[in-house]
């Protein structure tokens, strides 16, 4: 089944969606969308550094994304620049430095478009092992830490007072995001990774009554977007990564028209 490139792409994409769905819920709940974007942009810097040092690219991207996230946390504590400005600073400067460094790598054959927009149709069986291995690790960490992560999201003060550690939760989430970015970069590219985190999660919100339900539905919707996007890209010969994101967007728009969704979470009676 993994013999042809198209089924490999589908299998890889579904594996990725299973992870970005639940993780993306946290990104949405904690308003970390731009934060995720910043980490993703730093992935290009990670690629350049990995090539310069000739180390494994996935590993290099993970380390650089985690370092950028750490740098942001430290800068936030200084309390001099707003988080918004800091994100803009880190996001675009790491992307720019990455692009400049890539320019120096004249000896390495380098597919810049592939990095920016991904090339899911080029995934190898080996890539699939990385996606499913890494994805399983991410989901396991997420499942094991679900309660503290959720409690810290609802109220850090509350979690802290009742003996949990919201600071650790924050770091765990950042590392998971760095990992998912490192894994997903080849598939959808650094510019579109956050869309796979956010769009399925946002779509799932209207269809869910509990956080767990939202995480599962987001994973399912992400997988639908992958399948739909890939068939679309095959049919109309469009770029695969962006097609998946467009499919996710279309699912979101369709979900807006589903009226029953709004009933979830409504109080059963409106009496005083």
């Amino acid at each position: 089944m993994l013999a042809d490139f198209f089924s490999r792409a589908i299998v890889a994409g579904i594996g990725l969606a299973a992870v970005t769905g639940p993780l993306g819920c946290f990104v949405v709940w904690r308003r970390m969308a731009y934060f995720g974007d910043t980490m993703a942009h730093s992935a290009l810097l990670g690629v350049a550094i990995s090539l310069l040092l000739s180390i494994n690219i996935t590993f290099g991207v993970f380390v650089v994304a985690a370092l950028v996230a750490g740098a942001l946390l430290l800068l936030q504590r200084q309390n001099t620049l707003s988080t918004d400005a800091l994100l803009g600073l880190l996001s675009h400067s790491s992307l720019a430095v990455g692009l400049v460094l890539v320019g120096f790598l004249t000896t390495v054959r380098f597919d810049l478009m592939g990095l920016l927009f991904g090339d899911i149709l080029a995934v190898s069986v080996n890539d699939i092992f990385v996606i499913y291995g890494g994805g399983a690790a991410i989901l396991a960490v997420l499942a094991l830490n679900w309660r503290p992560l959720l409690a810290a999201t609802v109220s850090p003060e509350l979690a802290e007072a009742e003996g949990l550690n919201p600071e650790v939760s924050r770091i765990v989430l950042m590392l998971l995001m760095a990992l998912v970015i490192a894994i997903a970069m080849n598939l959808v590219g650094v510019l579109l990774i956050t869309s796979l985190l956010i769009i399925p999660a946002v779509t799932a919100r209207r269809l869910s009554a509990t956080p767990e339900m939202m995480a599962l539905i987001a994973a399912g919707l992400g997988a639908m977007a992958v399948v739909g996007g890939l068939y679309g890209s095959l049919t109309w010969d469009t770029a695969s990564g962006p097609s998946i994101v467009v499919a996710a967007l279309m699912i979101f728009l369709i979900s807006l028209a589903v009226p029953t969704a709004r009933l979830f979470g409504r109080r059963p009676s409106h009496g005083a």
């Binding site: 709940w29 309660r147 009742e162 956080p211």
Partner: peptide
């Protein structure tokens, strides 16, 4: 064992949370 009632808690609309689910937030 400590039970904590926080100051005015605002929960983002994006987080679907019923009262039932909130009860098991930390245990």
């Amino acid at each position: 064992t400590i039970g904590y009632v926080p100051q005015k808690l605002s929960i983002d609309w994006t987080l679907p949370l019923t009262v039932e689910r909130l009860m098991t937030l930390t245990g």
